[in-house]
Amino acid sequence: MGRVIVITSGKGGVGKTTSVANLGTGLAMLGRRVVMVDADIGLRNLDVVLGLENRIVYDLVDVAEGNCRMRQALIKDKRYDHLFLLPAAQTKDKSAVTPEQMRQICRELAEEFDYVLVDSPAGIEQGFRNAIAGAQEAIIVTTPEVAAVRDADRIIGLLDSFGLRQPKLVLNRIRPDMVRKGDMMDIEDVVEILAIPILGVIPDDEAIIISTNRGEPAVLDQSCRAGLAYRNIVRRLEGEEVPLMNLQEAQGLLALVKRLVGMGGR
């Protein structure tokens, strides 16, 4: 049986979908059989981020209602033939599936895949409850902002009440320069409040915006720092011990290079 992991956050716009796309692709790069499930019914995005939008015929709701077989709804990735997407329906809403149906779908997928990654919608209502229904593990995505951390805290409490203990944290979009100046919450500040193990830290990176718009996950780009951070998370998911990226040092190195070539201001 594969691992069913829900990626959730409470707050919207912190990078859940981007994280699912990158972790799914990253795991596929290591040869794992992966399926990504978009549980954000009515606001589907994961297909766009993966560049698979134009291939959708059937979706999650069709599978739940028995309009098609699972195989027919799964969309194979452009790059890896063992990476699949189960897209959300765009014309329905969250009440179109029940937690029990989601449990059944996740169970079925876990028999065939090593990883089932469920992209949760923002919020704590039925969409969230559906998304977590079939999961055995949870990854919380947050950004170093007070509101995002507050929502993450709420989600951790809710997950606990649904029996999903010890979720892991991905801290997204951190900016070392702002942290250094004391203008942004530090990794320690966030971990101190949330008190859950940290799975990874993703630096804020313009390349992510470019890659999501293109439909090519950043994790494929060897020169992208956010991509490297996602590859590290993938290795940690696989049980490897990988130290957290040293954001400060990397920044220093970049600044050093810039100075050497005469670009640096400071």
Binding site: R150, D151, D153, R154, I156, G157, L158, D160, A195
Partner: peptide, 12 residues
């Protein structure tokens, strides 16, 4: 007196 042996998170 009630003893609560856990962290109370947002919303609890």
């Amino acid at each position: 007196t009630l003893l609560v042996k856990r962290t109370l998170r947002s919303g609890q």
